[in-house]
Nucleic acid binder design. Structure first.
Lengths: 108, 108
DNA sequence: TTTACATGCAACCAATTGGTTGCCTAACAT
DNA sequence: ATGTTAGGCAACCAATTGGTTGCATGTAAA
């Protein structure tokens, strides 16, 4: 669990997760495109994500395909949010979403 | 949002959140007990948590009381769980299971 | 077989980070 | 007024981390 948090702490790694979300099962070289990083750097990041069980890999020939695993992320919330709190916060988030949709603001 | 991930990346800081989750509104000195760290180290960690809006502060006299703010944590879950839908999550879990089975299943 | 492609491994470097020590300020208590 | 308690600020150090370059390995294509 410790490794999940460390894996998520880096913006490049979160970008990799985003990329995999957009298109799952990409190879290392494919993931390199658009990230202006060395292949080796990306490979290191992917290794961290694998270690944290956030990414699963499948070898096909000489290609290493990467797949997302969102399960550990879900487990994070379980730690500090009580059951009722979770429900309450979900309602708040939905309200916030609707308000932002009405204003057109998209923010990270 | 970036600061939330970095704040959560450290085990001591997560322990502080755990402590606040167990008993909310503790002062700095109270939070120091049990963490075998210097007061200054704990103060630094709390500053990071404040910066990330994971902890809210209330001054009472010369004491600084700390409160856990669960909203950013919830937003993390909302983000990734919203993006990566649940049914794909199950497919991936199954895929990973099959991969590990085919690989010889060396468990850690 | 030869060539090109996809990835792994290792050494190395700079920047960040977690932690310490030392000193300073502010609010109580006596 | 004086001492004590709660906390802040700054300099410094060691360990970690993100990134690079260079070379090695395995797989597919010509």
């Amino acid at each position: 669990m410790d490794e999940v948090f460390k894996a998520l702490a880096d913006a490049s790694r979160r970008a990799l997760l985003d990329s995999l979300h957009a298109r799952n099962g990409q190879s290392l070289s494919e993931l390199c495109a658009g990230l202006q990083l060395t292949r080796q750097a990306v490979a290191k990041h992917l290794a961290v994500l694998e270690q944290a069980n956030l990414v699963a890999v499948l070898w096909r020939g000489r290609e290493k395909l990467h797949f997302l695993n969102p399960v550990p992320i879900h487990e994070i919330a379980e730690r500090w949010l009580g059951k009722y709190e979770r429900h309450r916060l979900r309602l708040l988030a939905q309200l916030k979403q609707r308000l932002e949709a009405a204003e057109g603001g998209t923010e990270e």
